[in-house]
């Protein structure tokens, strides 16, 4: 019983964490919280199922194509919903534009795909019970993703350019960095990371149009817990959320589990207002 709670808790946690990283990746270069993050996760599952089950493509084609399609959605988001409202960030109009795009994605999926959850293929036929691939795949994907991101950000020139833009947009532009291109690239990257969340968690979450809202919601929590823009924090926050949520599902039942999750979340935030791993507030004067 404990094995199953821990396995599913870690798996869901890893998916939430990946969505959290998706939020962070978009936020870093644009200072925009894009509500398309969860929809990207949903599309990862739907595209995976569409390509591999309906069209019969093998994994080696299905996965890259899914990532590519979601990266495309990410780029479109940047052009349609982010770029036009960057000028007036403090009006928070991006909430509206990104939500509108999220709603467009969700409605098209509901009508053209299905309103019922559809199957997602088994990928490797590996493991059973608590070690079933559906549990460890998201965790492994999360580990690989964060390692790759750390490598990108710390070891490569383009990664450092990302960091520079994230740190100080104006300074980066003054240095001659192609800030706009980097932003588009980060949205493409976020699309792919969101797709990975949905794809690796496809067997758990199924290819279901309503997953978008769910992931939007619970993917935001690791971001807040870990501190805005902090990917390592998002992973710890995500895994903690997954474990706590599944344990709460079991102990207090489905109705009050989300109450328990949010009560704890609010208490934690009030104790640590910048998130558990966020930087302290910068000096104001």
């Amino acid at each position: 019983m404990f094995a199953s709670i821990i396995a599913s808790g870690l798996a869901m946690g890893a998916i939430y964490a990946l969505i959290g990283i998706t939020y962070n990746t978009m936020f870093a270069t644009s200072r925009v919280m894009s509500f398309t993050a969860g929809q990207l996760g949903m599309l990862g599952g739907v595209f995976g199922s569409l390509l591999m089950l309906r069209l019969g493509l093998p994994l080696v084609l299905g996965l890259p194509l899914t990532l590519l399609l979601c990266a495309g959605v990410g780029i479109v988001t940047e052009f349609v919903a982010v770029r036009p409202v960057l000028k007036s960030l403090d009006q928070h109009l991006y909430v509206l534009t990104t939500l509108a795009v999220a709603l467009l994605i969700q409605q098209v999926t509901a009508i053209e795909w299905s309103t019922e959850p559809q199957p997602f293929p088994r990928l490797f036929e590996l493991g059973r019970d608590a070690w079933d691939e559906k549990y460890w795949l998201p965790v492994a994907t999360c580990a690989v993703t964060i390692s790759a991101l750390e490598f990108l950000y710390r070891r490569t020139l383009i990664g450092r350019a990302f960091l520079a833009v994230a740190e100080d947009n104006f300074a980066a532009r003054a240095l001659g960095l192609p800030e706009r291109t980097l932003r588009v690239a980060s949205y493409a990257m976020a699309g792919a990371i969101g797709a990975l969340a949905g794809f690796s968690g496809g067997q758990l979450l199924l290819a279901f149009f309503a997953n978008g809202q769910l992931l939007n919601f619970y993917g935001f929590i690791p971001v807040a817990l870990g501190g805005l823009g902090n990917n390592r924090g998002a992973i710890i926050g995500g895994l903690a959320l997954g474990l706590f949520q599944q344990a709460a599902n079991f102990t207090v039942g489905g109705i009050f589990a989300s109450v328990a999750v949010f009560v704890l979340f609010i208490v934690v935030l009030l104790v640590a207002p910048q998130g558990l791993f966020g930087a302290p507030a910068s000096r104001r004067v």
Binding site: V223, A224, S258, F265, I266
Partner: peptide, 20 residues
């Protein structure tokens, strides 16, 4: 105590708590 997004998230939390 909380800034922008963090506060936004807590209000959403209350919304969930109330309906549940």
């Amino acid at each position: 105590r909380l800034r922008t997004f963090y506060f936004a998230m807590t209000t959403l939390g209350f919304a969930t708590i109330v309906t549940q």
